[in-house]
Amino acid sequence: MTLGERIALARKKAGLSQEQLGDRLGVSRQAVSKWESSQANPDVAYVAELCRICGVSCDWLLLGEEGAREAPPARCGSCGAIVTGLDRYCPQCGHPLLKEEADTYSLVLVDPRKNLTAAFDALAWLSRRPWCAPEFPICRRSQEELEALLFRAPVSLMWGLSAQRASEALAAFRTPGMAAVYRDSDGSSAEELVQKPQVPPQSLPSPQPSRTPMSFGATVGAVIVGVIAAILILSFL
């Protein structure tokens, strides 16, 4: 059985039409049709969600392992949502599914009501960081989704961060008490984390200052100054 045939079988077992499956995945019916006819393969980004929707395992869908489809789908230990082997965190509640390293940290939005405008600015700034991983809710770039996070507090914005990244992320929230850093090695939810002691900001390394790249004019000027300096040095040799 090919990958396309397994996709078609999983869809039919879930009682969905090609159009319904496409709507849930955010793709066209034609895209689903091409997957099932083996004219194209789904991107990895769609595979985990497809498995969740249809209630099958990634092993069966991708590899065709016998008996895997009949096995009950894996579920998040925190909220019970269906998860797959491609998920590092639960897409429903953000609970970590893989064992984290001992010294990792979570950034939790605790009380944005102290200054909603400043909180939104901090969320928008964090979402543009090049190290912001795609599984973090903060990485949603639409204004509506960022604003929605403000009213879900307490909510974990980032997790599995190094001490340096946690310090940099916390520094984005200039109003004290708006956000906090906690150790996340035990995989606690945001509600559980806020009941535990916060990691004091002074115990984290100082955040790295953001560097603004030189403009074109400044770069040209620096090159000219360097050339003149080199000529002057050579003239004295």
Rank of each mutant, 00 (worst) to 15 (best):
T2M: 02
G4E: 04
E5K: 10
R6D: 11
R6K: 09
A8W: 01
A10P: 05
R11Y: 04
R11E: 06
K13L: 15
R24A: 06
G26M: 03
Q30S: 10
V32G: 01
S33G: 11
P42M: 10
D43N: 13
E49I: 01
G64I: 03
A71F: 00
R75Y: 03
I82L: 06
T84P: 01
T84M: 09
C90S: 04
P91C: 07
C93K: 13
P96D: 02
K99L: 14
L109R: 00
L109C: 02
K114C: 06
L116K: 08
L116R: 11
L116T: 07
S127A: 13
R129K: 14
P130L: 03
I138T: 04
R141L: 13
Q143A: 11
L149E: 01
R152E: 15
V155P: 00
M158E: 01
Q164W: 04
S167R: 07
E168A: 11
L170H: 05
A171M: 09
P176N: 12
M178R: 02
M178W: 03
A179W: 05
D186G: 01
D186Q: 15
D186K: 13
G187M: 04
V194L: 05
P201A: 14
P205E: 11
P209M: 08
R211N: 07
T212P: 11
P213D: 11
S215T: 15
S215L: 08
T219I: 09
G221A: 10
A222M: 13
V223L: 15
V227Q: 13
A229T: 14
L232D: 05
I233Q: 08
